[in-house]
Design a protein around this nucleic acid. Structure first.
Lengths: 130, 130
DNA sequence: ACATTATAGAGTCTTATAGTCTTTGATTAA
DNA sequence: TTAATCAAAGACTATAAGACTCTATAATGT
């Protein structure tokens, strides 16, 4: 069980966008270079972030991507969910009785991680990354 | 990112072993039936648990698997590590500076989950599953 | 010896990840 | 209005991991 590389790219891209406090949008070309990944691949990741409303995009010359208003409070969990999806890490598919205690414990532990990831915001990340 | 089915089987198998407080070992055949999984596949999972010292096995007629001494304090995390491995869920492979803050945050959140999984023991699970 | 059981290895099938390539559509600058 | 620049979307491919199966071997009890 591992986070996908896409999640790593997404997190770093969000940080890059947040750090470059430019009013102009930044092209995928530039963002891709900063992480040594292909622009077309990164664009798919960015599209997911756009669909979740964290990033806005403009086509055409001088276009690119920029963070949307309120970006400061975007959490790690928001970004991770945008890429990995929101479904639980553990699902007991076994058909045994109504309440699986194992499932319960696994979900509770997952919640602990998510609490922490919810607490960590983009603004906080920028602060410590300077 | 999902836990493997093998982890699910492992957790349920450990619970089954713990619940059947029999002094005699239990064959993989029996254990497999309880979860609707093939015996040969489950045996591979059990072998991992044996190698981690949580389960002991005896070959031959009337052989099978049983929990080792001190099983009560085996944690969810122990079982999960035995199947999924101990490596971190997130690894920033990017070559940018010495301390990646993203990596740090991700690891901290992971630790929260692991803390909880360490707290949850087999004995506790048996208690609530009765 | 023989039945029973775990262990180990190789092999298969499916799915997810991690991309690439190409086309289309929007926007701006000349 | 045309060309250049950019994002979005779809189809495609390659690799690896997950989820098994099958077969052979080794250990143990009757």
């Amino acid at each position: 069980m591992k986070y996908s590389k896409a999640t790593n790219y997404a997190l770093h891209t969000m940080l890059n966008l947040a750090m470059s406090n430019s009013s102009k949008p930044i092209g995928v070309q530039t963002l891709a270079e900063q992480q040594n990944v292909s622009p077309t691949y990164l664009s798919k990741i960015l599209t997911k972030l756009v669909k979740e409303g964290m990033v806005s995009s403009v086509s055409g010359a001088n276009g690119g991507y920029s963070l949307t208003k309120g970006w400061e409070s975007i959490s790690f969990l928001d970004i991770i969910f945008a890429i990995e999806g929101k479904s639980s890490l553990f699902e007991c598919g076994l058909d045994h009785g109504p309440h699986c205690q194992i499932q319960k414990v696994m979900l509770e532990s997952e919640e602990k991680m998510e609490e922490e990831l919810r607490r960590q915001t983009l603004a906080g990340l920028v602060q410590t990354s300077k």
